[in-house]
Design a binder for these strands. Structure first.
Lengths: 234, 234
DNA sequence: ACCTGAACACCGTTCAAGT
DNA sequence: ACCTGAACACCGTTCAAGT
């Protein structure tokens, strides 16, 4: 009703769920997910922490909410892609949709971690999964093979992977990294040799020798090629 | 010195790091990782919370420690496997080692989640990775291909995958699950049809239609087959 | 209907003090 | 050398009260 003349003085617009969620996403993007507390979010919105409970049930609901926002971005970006020409294009179409999801998640690096902890799927994620299934069905997959495929893709279907060696970026201290490598040369000779060999023809930074995008696509293509084989074998 | 005659009265053995870590692993196994707090762990050991800080630097160090214990179990189980006959056995040998790691992690369901949050790798994990690299080298992999392979495997190399739909086991309430399915039939038609179709020839439980072990092996074999192809292509 | 302040039950952790 | 109690700075959340 009174939305016409909002007073000139700052934040007199009443809070609502989407404003709370948008602020939470922005805060997590800027300061990291561990900085997102009910109190810090309230401060960001110029309000008391307890006010938030009128718009989200609790912190878990808040986390569900921000995952939903990100999943919505994925859905929006993916639905903007043109549909595959015919069933034979399932592989390229899946690849494109998954890489699109990945490009969205790269803007919200905290999202994979939060996604893992959710027990219910956002409807947007459900639709994303369904779209992938639809592509496979068009390509001639049985539901059984498509089901295996979804498991094989795992979180990769949404555009991220579980890396196990996420080296804490110790800003440019490559000397200690090299010292560490030499120290464990007897314990892990192959690992050390691999790293030194690949580092040689790689970029200057010792620890920056893994191109995430390249590795993601390598793994994704490996799986998609494997599925193509299984599909041919019936 | 005085370890010979421990008094009959319960816990008069002095605390040490490995006893603290063992108790922490046992507590997490029994009550879940969220139940592992400095205070609860101390109570378990019949001691004050602050005493723990003489044996672990802080909670992060405690988490590093219990991951190290689990990784040690993996290493022990894997080193008990007989070595592969020759280089041609790389695929079977990797498969066996990875499934062995998985069998250990199944006893510590909290471990994958904690592993993800660690910024440094346990030496046991390093050795596990190195053993996998060694198998690939024996099989004729270049370090470049082996490097891609490790990324493609990701956390699967340690025996777990990032499942995105970990349905909170709502004990046997299959009716509401079916109702939910029907409700989203228009939003996710393929997903619904897949679930109903697979459920038919599956076991009795509606939500228990995914055999984790089968799916893990399907994905692992998909990747190993794909690597074999890449290896042949040079 | 929306917001608030004080309070509660939990955390991890510091510190000075005990033996 | 090892353990302790009280205290501090944070959490998420409840509750009764304000407008």
């Amino acid at each position: 009703m009174t939305t016409a003349h909002a007073p000139a003085t700052g934040s007199r617009v009443p809070l609502n769920r989407s404003r709370v969620l948008a602020a939470a996403v922005a805060l997590a993007d800027r300061d990291g997910i561990e900085a997102l507390t009910m109190r810090s979010l309230a401060r960001e919105l110029g309000v008391e922490a307890m006010s938030l409970y009128h718009h989200v049930a609790n912190k878990d609901d808040l986390l569900d909410g921000i995952v939903h926002v990100v999943a919505g971005e994925i859905q929006a970006a993916a639905s903007a892609l043109e549909p595959p020409p015919d069933g034979s294009g399932w592989k390229a179409a899946m690849r494109r949709r998954i890489l699109t999801a990945r490009s969205v998640l790269l803007r919200h690096p905290w999202a994979p971690g939060v996604l893992e902890t959710r027990t219910t799927m956002s409807p947007h994620v459900v639709r994303h999964y369904d779209a992938l299934l639809g592509l496979m069905r068009l390509g001639g997959f049985s539901y059984d093979l498509a089901h295996h495929a979804m498991h094989a893709l795992g979180s990769r279907a949404l555009g991220f992977t579980q890396e196990l060696f996420e080296p804490a970026d110790d800003d440019g201290d490559d000397d200690t990294a090299i010292a560490m490598l030499e120290q464990m040369a007897d314990q892990a000779p192959h690992l050390v040799e691999m790293m030194t060999e690949i580092t040689h023809d790689g970029p200057e930074s010792t620890l920056g020798w893994c191109d995430d995008q390249t590795e993601f696509e390598f793994g994704l293509d490996l799986i998609l090629d494997g599925l193509e084989n299984r599909l041919r074998q019936g």
